[in-house]
Design a protein around this nucleic acid. Structure first.
Lengths: 343, 343
DNA sequence: TTTTAGCACTCTCGATACGAGAGTGCTAAA
DNA sequence: TTTAGCACTCTCGTATCGAGAGTGCTAAAA
């Protein structure tokens, strides 16, 4: 069943109005507020059809209409069009990134902040990680007693530090020699290849390499790196989360790592707009997200390193603006990843 | 004005009961529930005195009493006694730390998790940072084009990475030579000493050293490192935050870096119990914290590296248990800092 | 002097009732 | 096919009321 043009118009207006006002939308209001050339009664008839079609619903008999989840999906897919961020907003964001110090940590933090601020929702950014980690460089630094600090640099720029407790004290010279030996022989290997080479090394180097392999595997895990969040309190300002328990359910999704892993792992492309994924109302799969929508995008350079970023808000979300922002920031971060890639 | 023993007993009982039940406490309830040998009327008289003294108040004429902020302060300082975590709880926590991988990131994350879980409140842990950063080791790794990845290791084990854009491409050999030169000549210097030496180096090394000094200064800043949070949604479960706006106010404190800086910088020792600071109701200074209490402690090795950890919850907080937990975790982290200190 | 029993008083909270207002769905006319 | 008219339904805010809880005070008891 396809909608007439007029039905599409009315559906779009209802959704736009509801997103702004958070209120049910009535027929009279629609006509007066948007200067339609038809009467409220006609609008009511169309609304009735849209309700039958499953795109609108009413909370009770004498309330105006609000969009259903399917309504939002139809809107995002068919009606919304491809909005883009205003040029000066883009410029402002780019400028902020340009001004930031040149490290991943700052960029991630800034990305989360920009997303949260632009969308007035909660934002999430995972640090870029290689799909398959390649060894680049390793450093061993002696510390007190048998403790050794290992600093591992992977292709893609991921830097990981780790403490290593040796069986017996080893001089810094020995440590450096071991590191140099590994650096020379393991250049650009992945975790698997590295693991297979372990027997060829001496005891100290084997300990180091075991830890290195572990770290490399962790590095390419989806949530191996840091998770940057911002704007969690933004969602508390939304009227749909006036009841704390609904807010709690929503925010817990963002807080618990295990849940995030699940969410990011199953990147279900339910509604895909320009590389940006839109999850509306949990899409029947995530019970905890029934009251939320999530906009997700991957960024980075495929084959090198990628990360995920996203925004969580109420189902009644400013999809146009949010999707544009997510897309824009993802592009920005992708550029940065490419730029800093260790070859 | 000092309280009689009986008044102290009643005050303590009222507070303990209220912390558990979140309800106003009435005289009859107190007598029956705690098997007091006095009549409700006597309790009422004492409660009246405690109300006059400013330690209790009632929400309205016919409600039971609830503690005032001063009441809580008196309780924490005088009545609570020095509680300690149960031995098996301690053992469990220690075990978790022992099992964790040996890196700072994991420890911090675990500390935040333990604090949040034990206190059922929101927790905060800042990574350890040296009060005054000392140079330990530096690594330069060439990447695409003129981009260089600088990895900086400071005494105390703080590892910082940073991108550096050079004026012109430089070979890896030159980069390594520069790093070696700096490593040899700058061992154990602090930021100030390092800055004064900059003119003695060549152009490339000067660029690197400028960035190094910047990073060292940032490292010793209070919030220079990462901030670990957990259990933010715990506070949403508390009845005092049923109204979202109060929850929003409270959580914003934890979310906004600028506010945290202010809070951690002014470590006002209002109520100090065994190195643990207790901020009750914002102590008149922090308007945003009027409905919250914060338990803070510093950990680490003074002179080497220190960090802060803390818990945020409603004023009606299980102070005994929470303070013990904060103290215990702070001790654990301190041990870890000492253990991993790069000498 | 201290404690306690008795009692009037106050205030909250839930239940109930009621009217205003909003918006619909239907019918019949344009 | 559209629209005017109208009855109908449902929510929401306000007002009222009584039960219940807990106090403060007074006067008697210990």
């Amino acid at each position: 069943m396809s909608l007439t043009e007029r039905q599409k118009l009315i559906l779009a207006l209802v959704i736009r109005d509801h997103i702004e006002s958070a209120q049910p939308v009535g027929s009279r209001h629609l006509v007066e507020h948007y200067g339609l050339d038809i009467s409220p009664a006609t609008v009511r008839n169309e609304m009735y059809a849209l309700t039958e079609a499953g795109y609108l619903r009413q909370l009770h008999t004498s309330a105006g209409r609000i969009p259903t989840e399917d309504g939002y999906r139809y809107f995002v897919r068919q009606l919304m069009g491809h909005t883009d961020l205003p040029v000066n907003t883009k410029r402002m964001i780019t400028h902020q990134f340009y001004q930031a110090r040149h490290d991943v940590d700052q960029w991630m933090r800034l990305a989360a902040s920009v997303l949260a601020h632009q969308s007035q929702a909660a934002s999430l950014v995972t640090a870029p990680h290689p799909e398959s980690a390649h060894f680049k460089h390793l450093e061993l630094i002696g510390t007190v007693g048998r403790q050794v600090l290992m600093v591992l640099v992977l292709a893609g720029g991921d830097v990981r530090q780790q403490m290593l407790a040796l069986a017996e004290p080893v001089s810094q010279d020995h440590l450096s020699a071991a590191a140099n030996n590994i650096n020379e022989r393991c250049q650009d290997l992945n975790a698997r290849a590295l693991a297979s080479m372990i027997p060829q090394f001496n005891a100290l180097e084997q300990d180091v390499l075991k830890l290195t392999v572990e770290e490399m595997e962790r590095s390419s895990a989806i949530l191996g790196g840091e998770v940057y969040r911002d704007g969690l309190t933004n969602v508390l300002a939304e009227p749909e989360f006036a009841e704390v328990n609904s807010a709690r359910r929503a925010l817990r999704v963002f807080e618990e790592r295990s849940f995030l892993e699940d969410l990011l792992a199953r990147t279900v492309l339910t509604t895909n707009v320009g590389g940006v994924q839109v999850l509306i109302g949990g899409e029947g799969t995530w019970e905890e997200l029934r009251e939320c929508s999530i906009i997700l995008a991957r960024y980075g350079a495929p084959g090198l390193a990628t990360g995920t970023l996203g925004v969580l808000g109420p189902i009644r979300m400013a999809y146009g603006r949010t999707i544009s922002t997510v897309r824009f920031v993802a592009g920005l971060l992708s550029d940065l990843v490419v730029e800093m890639h260790v070859e």
